[in-house]
Amino acid sequence: MRLRWARGRGTIETMTGPRASEWLGLDDAGNPIARVIHLDGPMHTERGVFRAVALDAEQKLIRLLPLPPNDGDWLAVIGGRVVGRAAAPLAAVRRVEAAL
């Protein structure tokens, strides 16, 4: 299923300036039903070092991922469910669309 995609809220600082760290997948009514999100981190906690990502818009649902393995910086999320991980946002978009 194809979605319309738009830039989300976050940004990543890069050598060439800020870049979107979230892309929202919108249904026909314009409601966000999926997202691809760049993993933050590494984040140091008492339990170890993780990469982190908020799975929902309110940032209530946080997922921690161990370091390594590093199998891609972008997480494909539908609702609060992670459906895949990819090295590039476009590839993560395809994972979302394939899972819908």
């Binding site: 319309r4 890069t14 979107a20 892309w23």
Partner: peptide, 17 residues
């Protein structure tokens, strides 16, 4: 190529979508 290259260019991503 598109996946990798457009990951560094948001305007390009929007054009692709």
């Amino acid at each position: 190529l598109l996946d990798t290259a457009l990951a560094v260019d948001d305007a390009g991503m929007e054009e692709y979508f």
